[in-house]
């Protein structure tokens, strides 16, 4: 099953199981079914609870908050995650604050889906990974879609949390399969954390390097792990958390080694990786050979032309190189 189908099924499941659940966003109705077809079929099955909105990201996020405020479960789609900037006030000053600024906890079941990332030639304002701008906001949780996490399960976790959640969906994943098919590696789950190790017991037992990556970067990390293993006999472990913020760093600790690297698509500066590194340093500094390494896209806008875009975005080979450098030091 492709990731997009899994996500679509998760939305069907949510609307099916929860009579208070709404899905709203721009162009989400059938037959169009959303710019990335993720909402396909929803409006046909649940015409009253799937709502198409004008091009008003701020207002549609506010409406979602209003629905959540009155006890509903609201899922809002921001067509391109870049446009979440237009909803920043609703997210930061209303939804996230409302959970706690009225003195007692006010649960809000609200998910804002953000198709994210580059690699598809959409250019500087339709290709960004804006996760870093939402990190550190009390009352706002960040999740990222991954091929190793069933989306229905992730949605349940976000709803259960009772606070607004941003769900980042790397667009590249939509057409990729769930799970991973490379026989070189095996995936297991420890709670919300996906742990990917080499299939052979020997390299799996003592990984040379541990890579922490969100779902959208995981397949690039896996590609690097494959070439490192085959070409250089370097063994890596990949850790993919479902929730990026607040990060449960305790869940990562048992899987870390002496060399740790964070790979993500965000452009350089103030990254999620910086936050992960800080948390790991606080808890595991003595066990590390050196500081946590950060691999990310360049400090640049994301160009449209394919050859230029490739120069800016994080790639499999950049991760490969970074692991080699980390092990050389």
């Amino acid at each position: 099953m492709r990731v997009a189908e899994n996500l679509n099924a998760a939305l069907h499941g949510l609307l099916d199981d929860d009579p208070t659940a709404y899905v709203l966003g721009e162009d989400v109705l059938d037959p169009y079914g959303g710019a990335f077809k993720i909402t396909k079929g929803l409006s046909t099955r649940f015409p009253d609870r799937v709502i198409t909105t004008p091009i008003s990201e701020g207002a549609l996020t506010g409406v979602a908050a209003g629905l959540a405020l009155t006890g509903n479960t609201a899922v809002a789609e921001i067509m391109f995650g870049d446009f979440a900037a237009l909803a920043f006030d609703q997210l930061c000053n209303f939804a996230a604050k409302s959970v706690s600024m009225y003195g007692s906890r006010l649960p809000l079941r609200m998910i804002v889906r953000c198709p994210t990332g580059g690699g598809r030639g959409y250019g500087p304002t339709h290709s960004q990974s804006l996760q870093k701008h939402f990190i550190g906001m009390p009352g706002l949780a960040l999740y990222e879609m991954s091929p190793f996490h069933d989306n229905r399960e992730v949605f349940a976790a976000m709803v259960e949390r009772g606070e607004p959640c941003l769900f980042f969906e790397d667009k590249i994943l939509y057409t990729r399969p769930m799970g991973q098919a490379d026989p070189l590696f095996t995936v297991r789950r420890d709670g919300e954390l996906a742990v990917v190790d080499p299939a052979l017991p020997e390299p799996a037992a003592r990984p040379d390097c541990v890579i922490v990556a969100p779902g959208g970067t995981a397949h690039r990390a896996l590609g690097a792990m494959r070439s490192l293993l085959l070409e250089e006999e370097i063994s890596c472990r990949l850790l993919v958390p479902s929730r990026l913020y607040p990060l449960e760093v305790g869940a990562l600790l048992p899987y870390l080694g002496e060399v740790v690297l964070v790979a993500e698509e965000s452009t350089a500066g103030g990254t999620w990786g910086g936050e992960v590194a800080h948390l790991v340093h606080q808890r595991a500094w003595d066990r590390l050979r050196g500081p946590v390494r950060l691999v990310h896209s360049a400090a640049s806008v994301i160009p449209t032309a394919a050859h230029l875009e490739r120069e800016v975005l994080i790639t499999e080979s950049a991760i490969h190189r970074a692991v080699r450098e980390a092990l050389r030091d």
Partner: peptide
């Protein structure tokens, strides 16, 4: 419910009105 940011409550109120 009151909030301190100008205009912010209108879309939220629209959501609440939809619910009501």
């Amino acid at each position: 419910l009151s909030t301190g940011v100008q205009g912010e409550s209108l879309p939220v109120a629209a959501g609440v009105a939809l619910h009501l």
